[in-house]
Every structure is written in C-alpha cells, then in structure tokens.
Design a protein around this nucleic acid. Sequence first.
DNA 1: CGTGCTGTTGAGGACGATCAATGACGGTGG
DNA 2: CCACCGTCATTGATCGTCCTCAACAGCACG
Lengths: 269, 269
Amino acid sequence: MKPSFIVRSWAAMIELEAPSTAVAAVAAKLRSLGIDAGRDLEPFLRLIKVKGVMRRGVELVRTEASKNSCIVLLEGVACWSRRTDDGRRQIFAFHYPGDFCDLNRYVLPQLANSARILAVTDCLIGTVQFEHIEEIIGRLPAVGLALWRATMLEASIFRETLHNSHRPALERVAHLLCEQLARREAIGLSDGIIPLTQIDIADATALSPVHMNRTVQELRKLGALSRNTRAIKVASRERLVEIGRFDGRYLNMPKLLANWKIRLDAWLA
Amino acid sequence: MKPSFIVRSWAAMIELEAPSTAVAAVAAKLRSLGIDAGRDLEPFLRLIKVKGVMRRGVELVRTEASKNSCIVLLEGVACWSRRTDDGRRQIFAFHYPGDFCDLNRYVLPQLANSARILAVTDCLIGTVQFEHIEEIIGRLPAVGLALWRATMLEASIFRETLHNSHRPALERVAHLLCEQLARREAIGLSDGIIPLTQIDIADATALSPVHMNRTVQELRKLGALSRNTRAIKVASRERLVEIGRFDGRYLNMPKLLANWKIRLDAWLA
DNA sequence: CGTGCTGTTGAGGACGATCAATGACGGTGG
DNA sequence: CCACCGTCATTGATCGTCCTCAACAGCACG
C-alpha cells in the first residue's frame, strides 16, 4: 500500500484522493444496508474523514482527540479481537473496507470493553464523528436504520461464528474462509486470495497454529485451496462451500450469493 | 403458571391483568436501556399486547396474523436456538422476562433465518406490532435508540458467549450460570435457582449431556452449586464467579454488578 | 546475512464425545 | 392408590480430535 494518498485533512472523503476502491467499498456496503444511492449516500460519505495508514499489527487506537468518533475501514483487513485468559489472541470477526469497526461504541459507549481493533494487514482508515452521526440520523432516518442494520449484520455474523465454532476443524476453517471470500467479493476483491496468515485464522477459529496448519494442508489436498503458494488462495469455491457446509444467507448479500451453491437443508427443515 | 391472567384482548398490557412481575421486568429492562421512566416508558408499555401462555418445549410461533410483530417475553424462560447439522439443538442465548425475542426481524427481516425461539419453561408472551414500533420511534427517538441498544446488548452477549465457548467445560458452565444468575437478578428473580435442565445447559455450552452432568457434579463438589436439590441452584455466587472468571460488564447492568466481585484483569491490561 | 515471523513435521497426552445401562422423579391413567 | 411411562440425572468404559511440546525449514525484513 503506497502512502501517496494519505491525507490527514478534515475535508470530506469524496473530495480527497482516497482510493476509488475504498469509496466503492464503502458505497457498496451502505447500499447493501438499504441506503438510497441517489439521496442518502453522498451526504453520508461526506462525513468520513480519511485518517491515514496503520501498519499491520498495530491497534487502531482512538486518540483522545477522536474519542467521540468511530472508525471506518477503507483499505486492508482489520479484526475485532481480545486477549483470552491465557494470553492468547481471540479474533471475533474480521473487518473489510466499508465496515464500521466500532459503531457499537456509539450505541453503548458504557460497554466499551476489553475488545481491541487490530490491523491484520496494513490498513487505511477513516473516522466519523459521533455528533455527525447523530445529526444525520436526525435528518435522514433511513441512515439511522442502515446503521442499525450494520450492527445487526455484525450480530448475525457473531451468531454464525458461534454456530460454526463447535464443528470439526476442517469444516470450521472452510466455513470461515467461505465467509471471508464472500465478504471480499461483495466489495470487489475477487482474486480468491485471503490475506491472512494461518495464525490469524487459528486465532479466529480457536485452533492451535499446529492444527491449523494441518487443516490447511488437508484443504489443499482436497482441492479447496491452492497448493502453489504459501498464501491462502482459494482454488475451488464449490469445494470449499461443500466442505464448510456454507450457507451465506446470514451475510445479507442475496445478489452475490445467487452465484454460489448454497445448502438449503436448514431452511427447509 | 396459572392461566387465570391470560387475556387475548388487544387492549394495552398495563390495562390488563398481566402479572405485575412481568410489567416490572419489562420496565426494568427498558430503563436499563436508557428509556426515561417518566416520559417514554408508559407509551411503550401500552404497545405490548398480552398473547398468552406457551407450554414448555413449543416454538413461539408467529402466526400469519402476527407476522409483522415481534415477541416480548413476559414470564418464563425462552431460548434462541437452531438445529446443528447432526440434528442437535444449539442454544445461542436464553431469554428472560422483558427481553425482545426477535427484534432482529424488525431490523433485518430478510435475514429471518433458520433460528427458532423455543419455550424452555412455560412462558407468558406478548407481542408488539412492527407498525407501532415504527410509529413510536418516529415520535420518541429515545425509544429507537433504546431498541437499538437492546439488539446491541444481545450482540454483546453473543460475543461473550463466543469468547466463553473455547474454554474448559468447568469454567464455561460456571460462566454461563453466572450470566443467567445476573440476568435473573436484574429483573427481580433472586432465589438463585436457574430453571434449566442439564440438557438445556449442555445445548447452550455445546457439551454432551454426559459431560455436562459431570461438570455439574464438580461444581457441586466445589461448593458453587447446591447439593440438596436436583435443580440447578447456586450455593455460592462468589465461588461461581471465581470459577467462571466472570466479568459481567458486558451485560450493561452496572448497578447490579456493583455487588458482585468482578475480575478486573482484562480491563486493566 | 543474521533475525524474526510463519509454515511444517513428529510424538505424546488430555479433554471431552460416545456408547451403554441404570436410577430417580413427575405426570398420567387405570 | 398404584402401575406405567417418559424425561432427566447419573455412572463406567472406550475412543478420537485436537492440544502441547519440540525442533527445523523457508521466506521477508532490515
């Protein structure tokens, strides 16, 4: 990620040289939440201030000055994590461009807890002031509902993760990778590469790195992941969906998933 | 639960003979979400229609007629569950009086999925029409924010459950019981009895009933649960909190938890 | 050209699942 | 009142998935 477009100005995002992919990702996300592209989208985009690049591994700290704002991821991958009792890192969910990383703080600030937002890769982030959110919700109620939906979608992902987390390692990892693949495709990242280390995935599935590695090898052997690279690259989406018994409807992206083969069992029972 | 107070009328809840404990529970819940008791509370309570008693084990079905409404639990215990691939029941969360069981359907109806609301004990339920929610949110924005908070609180519980679900059985069960205890105390149920079967708890912790039983026995041996009854009865809250390393701040009940001994580690790190 | 992180492999051990059987309790109907 | 039945609780034995420890290889980085 070249830092050429980093601007710390407080001017509006769309007036800046924020990468077009970032703007597109945020717009795609908002549209999927029901924001009217013609009327409400632009006013909201104008609230996003580009903050800058955060290096991989650092916490997306909220400085004292920006305590009353929340973070929008513009480029890269972040995660919502916490330390477990034994000092391990647990990853609740990954964030992709267009995601609001800590919108929960707007709704329940007193709950601000031990969770941390970490940059999993180098990240470009923006912020939105709480007061601006409050103002636009009052002015455009549809935006309020869209933000509510954004948090509900996150809850839906938590639920699915919870469901997934008590399944055997192979299915578990396959399912997680399916989700990441779908969410990346939803914002135009369709190269099939999932830019996470095996350790990242281990922390997100609560598997040991060792067993994670064996599981990845198994997925490669089964033809779901590519064998030609150290990176996590999906070789066969169908295979992965099948292994993970992935039913992506919890992600609220009907159009995208129309192209996917999806299990129907649970919905017909 | 005597059916004497069952009224299927559409008159407002507080004008009915809904048990006072139910009204108190709903009111307590709403107040904890930031509803102004003097101004916004009563208008909201008036929207709740008492529906009737559901027997233990049945699904809290939404009839066609009430498709556009959501369920408020008034008495008893319900759960949000799903069938796993192998036919097992998985419980995501329990519901107590005052909880909105499916408010998510109001926000993201298209996501209405394979999840089911089941009565874990006999339940008294009420409903609120979506149109009434929409109306009151428009009129009293504070109610809208409170409902958003309600869904966020649920998400917070999911997150904690996710965190908890990768710990050893003993801690896991102790933590779950702590949560149920706290949530019951919050609505005035302070007898220390948790009206769940070991099978219910097994389904909520993804443990086998056999191992669940051994864990319960261990908790009894450790003095956390009472040995004098078949029921799950807490003998020592302190012991249970200690074993489960329970930090209840994710529940958003600061006043209640002031009496609890709570771990501070994660918050100071 | 080391230094650190990530990926990879082997061996042993633990936690919890599974199978199977029995006991205890509550409700139902004769 | 008692016999019956279903659900829940309890116990023992075996087995499997995944963790842990330990060591090493490969790649990226300064």
